[in-house]
Simulated scan of single mutants.
Amino acid sequence: MAEVSIIVPVYQVEKYIAQCIESVLNQTFQDFELILIDDGSKDESGIICDLYAMKDDRIIVIHTDNQGAAAARNVGLERASGRYITFLDGDDYLAPNMVERLYEVIEYSQYDMVVCDFLNILPNEKDNFIVHLQEKTVNGREVLEHLKNEKNHGLWTIVWNKIYKRKVLENLRFPDGKYFEDEFFSNQLYLVSNQIHVIPDVLCYHRVLETSTMNTQKIENYLDLLEALQERLEIYFIYAYADDEIYKVLIYLLDPFTKCVKAKFSGINEQRVEQTRRFIKTTSKKLMKRELSFVKKSSLVIIGLFPDLTYRLAIRFRSQLEKFL
């Protein structure tokens, strides 16, 4: 049994998968198993994975029909035997000491997970950036209630810049068939996480391709994001999270909601949009009874009645509204 299981969903990344695998094989920490889930790739990705597995018995390749990254990661979780688990995307790669650095921090501690900084590699190299993390220890509630609502480039939603104790993930799985699967996963992850340590080391290199999922989202995919955000708001109410944080997430929900309204869906998708409209109205009413400023309470009246119109007006006058909200 390996100390660390590294789970990699692989789909149509023949240009990058060799670098991804090599970055794992060249780790200064060698007690790992690398689980590659070929998610029905139609290019040479699966073949490349098989060739590497023939050379190194720490590599496990599982070929599946195309079901998406969520299902692929779940397959990896079922197969993983390590005491610790990390995730990596097939077009990303690791610094040579990433696993060792994360392992040495989590192994002799009470942390449920350790989080590191990462370099975002964009199509235009001049746009590359890191998050500039500061070392600190937080808890799961603090992350879900506050930190996830800050501007942090998805730091607390993504799964591939962290190492997890196996026991934290034992009863967690990604939602099959959903887009924005990390949003659903993180909702549950931070409910069961206690201490989380952040280190400033830049240890992961994440490619943001022009063809990446986030850059090629179909409008209907945002229906899943709406569902994930509604789930988070329900958690906030159940666990009595701060009223201002509930308000923040409701405001954020208006963006994908407005996109979906403009799409003029029919059938089941139209029903999902209307269900969200009702949810916004109900949530606005609940919040009007909470400890919020007069300005925010007033805005909730309009949001509850005309959520998509409110969002379009808010974007138009954003700079002025930010002074009040």
Rank of each mutant, 00 (worst) to 15 (best):
E181H: 12
H206V: 12
V261H: 04
N269V: 03
R316S: 14
K162F: 09
V261S: 10
T282H: 09
I85S: 02
I121W: 04
I315E: 12
T258S: 00
L225K: 10
E3N: 14
I251L: 14
N221D: 12
A2R: 06
S298Q: 11
K136P: 09
D112I: 09
M113C: 14
I158Y: 15
I219D: 05
M214D: 14
N187R: 11
Y11W: 12
Y241W: 08
N97Y: 00
E145V: 00
Y164H: 08
Q230E: 14
I37S: 00
I235A: 02
K248W: 01
G40C: 06
Y236D: 03
L102K: 08
L172P: 04
P9A: 09
E145P: 05
F185I: 02
E142S: 13
E210R: 09
T86Y: 00
F279N: 04
K289G: 07
V24M: 04
H153Q: 12
L191I: 09
L155N: 08
F129T: 11
L254F: 03
R290V: 00
N161G: 06
T310W: 15
G46C: 09
V99F: 05
T211I: 10
E78H: 14
N74H: 07
A18K: 09
E150M: 11
K136W: 05
I163N: 10
I219G: 03
L287F: 01
N120D: 15
F180E: 07
Y108I: 15
S45T: 10
E145H: 12
P175C: 04
I130E: 14
E181D: 10
K165H: 13
R207Y: 11
H197A: 15
A18V: 09
D182M: 10
V8D: 09
F184Q: 00
D127T: 01
I17C: 05
E322S: 13
V61C: 05
Y190K: 09
P256Y: 01
L144V: 04
N26S: 03
V105E: 10
S193G: 09
I59L: 01
L203Y: 07
G82S: 05
K151L: 15
I7Q: 08
I303P: 05
Q275S: 14
P256A: 02
E150G: 07
R278C: 10
